Simulated assay, not measured.
Amino acid sequence: MPVPFEALIPLGLITGFFGVSGLLFQKLKNSVNEGQPPRYGVDRWDRIMMDRDFRLTGSKRGQSHQPTAPAGFSTSSAWTLEKEHL
């Protein structure tokens, strides 16, 4: 039985659109994570370390190789202060 060639055009379009959307989604995820693989199973400790890395480098995925913290790190505490309610 011959294959109807009219069916190959929509099949090619659908395959092409799925391929393009998958590629764009991969590039978007890669750019959000700064070129590193995505994190899975992030717990409280990981979030604390991401906040520390953000305060040190300005990026949640970036890490610093400096042995000492920059001067502004001592004043950028993760602890928030509450006002006293009298």
Rank of each mutant, 00 (worst) to 15 (best):
R52V: 13
P10W: 01
G16L: 11
D51C: 09
A78Y: 03
G62L: 07
V3L: 13
L28G: 00
W45D: 14
I48N: 05
L8A: 06
M50P: 04
F17C: 10
A71V: 15
P4R: 15
D53K: 09
S31P: 00
T57G: 06
H65L: 12
I48P: 03
L56Y: 12
P10C: 08
V32N: 03
F25S: 11
I9T: 05
G22Q: 09
K60R: 05
L11T: 08
R55S: 15
S59Q: 08
G22V: 03
G16A: 12
A69K: 12
S21K: 05
F18T: 09
I9P: 00
H85F: 01
Y40H: 01
W45P: 08
L24N: 01
Q66N: 11
A78V: 13
T15K: 02
S21V: 02
G35W: 02
Y40K: 01
D46R: 12
F17P: 00
F5G: 12
L11Y: 02
L24M: 08
M49P: 03
E6K: 12
V32F: 01
N33R: 06
I48Q: 11
T68C: 11
D46Q: 13
F25G: 11
S76A: 15
P2N: 15
G22Y: 02
A69E: 15
G72L: 14
G12R: 01
S77P: 09
L81N: 06
Q63D: 02
M49A: 12
K60W: 01
L13T: 02
R39E: 08
L81C: 04
P4W: 10
N33L: 04
V20C: 03
P37C: 03
T68L: 12
F54Y: 13
P70G: 07
G58E: 11
K29M: 01
T80I: 08
L86R: 11
Q36K: 15
M50N: 13
F73L: 07
Q63E: 14
P10R: 04
L13M: 07
H65M: 13
Q63M: 12
L23R: 07
T75L: 14
T57L: 01
L23K: 02
S64K: 06
V42K: 10
K83W: 03
Q63Y: 07
K83F: 06
L24P: 03
P38Y: 00
G35M: 10
V42F: 04
R61L: 04
G22T: 09
V32E: 02
D51A: 08
F5S: 14
S76D: 15
A71W: 06
P67G: 05
R44D: 13
V42W: 02
L13G: 01
F17M: 10
A69G: 02
G41F: 04
D53T: 03
P10A: 08
F54M: 11
Y40T: 09
Q26P: 00
N33Q: 04
I14T: 05
H85Q: 10
V32T: 06
S31H: 09
P4V: 07
A71C: 06
Q26Y: 05
D53H: 05
S74F: 14
K29A: 04
S21H: 03
P38W: 02
T15F: 03
R52L: 14
P38N: 02
W79S: 03
F5W: 05
S76L: 15
P67H: 03
T80F: 13
G12E: 00
M49S: 13
S64V: 02
E34Q: 15
F17V: 11
P67T: 07
F18H: 04
G41E: 01
Q26S: 10
